[in-house]
Design a protein around this nucleic acid. Structure first.
Length: 525
DNA sequence: GTTCTGTTGCTGAC
DNA sequence: GTCAGCAACAGAAC
């Protein structure tokens, strides 16, 4: 009987802890090859920014170091997985291929093709779930094959299913050696490349360092303050806090799998248990944030065309206007609204912004002010965010544009007053938009209202050094609200959400006789 | 059918 | 700091 030679194929899940695929590959193996493949599909500088790629390379270097400490090493090969892997099967005499299951559309297609090739080569495949707390297929099955549409029903679903699996055991101190031919590959052929080596600028500008080591340290740091953990309420965070962010910034580590959601979840439950119920609850608690991730990942896995408007049955069809100039101004921090422009600058610079800051700019681009498609904004976020996650990005853009999940389109973020609530002096703006750093606090959110003498004293003339507002918010938001109303009416008449290309052709009848009874209600908050 | 509620709106009067 | 009014949606529970 031939020996076992395995590949543990890393894609996300860039960690050794809670890694069931690694355990499966290593168990009773004579040879184990840890492998990452730099897929050209992901590495396009115009589509994936330098900060996220840097984060990835740092994560790979950290992974390599961890393998070396266990008598192994990480091989990094380049090419399409469907071409690289069959060669490796043959060259190295591979008998087993293990990788973490992935529900994104590209990944599903890629993995199905690879699994077929493996079968043809007589290679046994295992792909356990460890990117999410729960197996999305299991959740779907428990909910009649359909994803829940609200966070409340999602929370109910996971409550009914019970606690998620515990994190898997740590891998052994000593791992099997590489196959002989794989071990012969040198750094040039199979090492972690430099940014420049793959066509990127030599360095990114993000503050956040990739890798499992950094992830565990960051988690430990935030979890050490148990009062903070138990009092965490996401909506109360300060989006303008940039020296120490109001949230954990564990999202990029969860995105790449440097941190296991199950480990994070287990640690949170431990702390909550110590406090005997005195802690915040989902959806606003820290655990709630993991459930949001879980909810949206499930939606991304179960709803067709989840990253598009057309053909997406959950997405309201709204007649957005394709306006490249507006989109570009938004992307390049030239809207003339300092709060918006500063946030977009933080995005390009750090690859991360607070959740509420993302809300501000997403609302502004779509239903609030510029009436551009959420898909266009999604693409910009997908390029620059270090934590860009396919499902979460699509879900949040649909949420903010009131295309799905959320429908109170009359709640519009003000590009002027929203940030002011948190940062009266405008320190966040001064930091990210240095051109405005000497503008008096009175005018910093609306510099076009500053008298010319003030502008001169601040060294920032509006219309010359910094643009005038791209739209008048009061006018634009009012017009857009009317457009939303019409799109919603059209959707109701045309039969909900609408998958096909029906678009928004139906014009809104002034009063469809819908005659909803005059629900007079005294609502209190 | 009605009622309740939804992680995170804004403005202006008090 | 609180609260009504703004103009008003849709899923879930009843």
């Amino acid at each position: 009987m031939p020996g076992k030679t395995s590949i543990i194929w890393f894609r996300k899940g860039l960690r050794l802890h809670d890694n069931p695929a690694l355990l499966a590959a290593a168990a009773d193996a004579d040879h184990l090859c840890p492998l990452f493949i730099l897929d050209p599909w992901f590495l396009k500088p115009d589509r994936v920014g330098v900060n996220r790629v840097q984060f990835l390379l740092e994560s790979l270097a950290d992974l390599d170091a961890s393998f070396r400490a266990r008598g192994s090493r990480l091989l990094v090969l380049r090419g399409k997985p469907a071409e690289v892997l069959p060669r490796a099967f043959k060259d190295w005499g591979v008998t087993h291929l293990c990788f973490e299951s992935d529900t994104e559309p590209y990944a599903k297609e890629r993995d199905a093709a690879v699994a077929q090739l493996a079968e043809a080569a007589g290679v046994e495949v295992a792909s356990p779930v460890s990117h999410t707390l729960y197996d999305p297929q299991l959740l779907l099955a428990r909910n009649a094959g359909k994803p829940p549409l609200t966070m409340q029903s999602f929370t109910k679903l996971v409550d009914a299913v019970g606690p998620p699996p515990s994190p898997a055991a740590d891998p052994p101190e000593k791992l099997p050696p590489l196959p002989v031919k794989a071990a012969a590959l040198d750094a040039a052929a199979a090492g972690v490349p430099t940014l420049a080596g793959i066509g990127y600028p030599p360095a990114g500008t993000t503050l956040f360092k990739g890798g499992e080591t950094a992830a565990l340290a960051r988690m430990a740091d935030y979890l050490s303050d148990k009062d903070w953990v138990c009092a965490f309420e996401k909506p109360k965070g300060n989006p303008a806090a940039f020296m120490r962010p109001a949230t954990t910034v564990l999202s990029p580590y969860l995105k790449f799998g440097c941190l296991s959601p199950r480990l994070f979840h287990a640690k949170l439950q431990q702390i909550y248990a110590e406090r005997k119920g005195k802690h915040t609850q989902p959806p606003v608690s820290l655990r709630g944030q993991l459930l949001w991730r879980e909810f949206f990942t499930l939606c991304g896995a179960a709803i067709p065309n989840f990253d598009r408007m057309q053909g997406n049955p959950g997405c309201k069809q709204i007649p957005w206007v394709d306006d490249p100039e507006r989109l570009q101004a938004w992307q390049d921090s030239r809207t003339g609204y300092p709060w918006i422009d500063a946030i977009m600058c933080q995005l390009r610079q750090q690859g991360w912004m607070h959740h509420l800051a993302r809300h501000s700019v997403a609302c502004f681009l779509t239903r609030g002010d510029l009436w551009c498609s959420w898909e266009a904004g999604q693409a910009v976020f997908d390029k620059y965010l270090i934590d860009a996650d396919w499902s979460l990005n699509a879900a949040n853009w649909q949420w903010l544009s009131a295309s799905a999940f959320f429908s109170q389109y009359f709640r519009v973020y003000s590009p002027v007053t929203f940030g002011k609530q948190y940062d009266k002096n405008g320190d966040y703006i001064r930091h990210f938009m240095p051109v405005l750093k000497d503008m008096p606090a009175k005018y910093i959110y609306e510099p076009w209202t500053a008298p010319l003498s003030v502008q001169q004293a601040a060294g920032c003339i509006i219309g010359k050094d910094y643009p005038r507002p791209i739209v008048d918010h009061a006018t634009a938001s009012k017009e857009n609200m009317a457009r939303m109303k019409a799109a919603y009416e059209a959707a109701r008449e045309g039969g909900a959400g609408g998958g096909g290309g029906a678009g928004s052709g139906g014009k809104a009848a002034a009063d469809a006789g819908g005659g909803s009874s005059p629900a007079k209600r005294a609502r209190k908050k």
